[in-house]
Simulated assay, not measured.
Amino acid sequence: MDKRSALIAAARAAMIEQKGNVEIGDVARRAGVSVGLAYHHFGSKAGLVAAVVTEFYDRYDDIVMQDMGRGRPWLERERERLVRIVDFLFHDPLTPIILGQLSGSPEVAQIEFGRRGKIIESAAWVIERGQEKGELDPSLDPYVTAAIFTGGLREACNRWIARGDPPDAELFVSRSWRIMAAGLAPKN
Rank of each mutant, 00 (worst) to 15 (best):
V49Y: 07
V52W: 04
V49S: 06
A46N: 15
L184S: 13
I16G: 10
R154I: 10
Q18K: 06
S103P: 03
G47V: 01
M65L: 15
I16A: 12
L94W: 04
I97K: 07
D87M: 00
R30G: 01
N188A: 14
F149S: 13
V83Y: 03
P93N: 13
V173G: 07
P93D: 14
L102F: 01
D58A: 10
Y143V: 05
S103G: 08
Q18F: 02
D168H: 08
I148K: 08
G151T: 11
G183H: 08
R178I: 02
L153D: 04
E78Q: 13
F56M: 05
G151N: 13
R116F: 11
K45T: 06
K3A: 15
N188E: 13
I16Q: 06
K118F: 01
G25H: 04
N188R: 13
G152A: 12
L136A: 09
K187W: 04
V144M: 14
P93Q: 12
A156T: 15
V33S: 14
G47S: 13
P96S: 12
S34K: 01
T150R: 15
S139D: 15
G32L: 05
A123R: 10
C157I: 11
G32Q: 06
G36D: 09
G36H: 00
D26F: 01
F149V: 15
V86L: 10
S5N: 14
R115C: 10
V126C: 03
I148C: 08
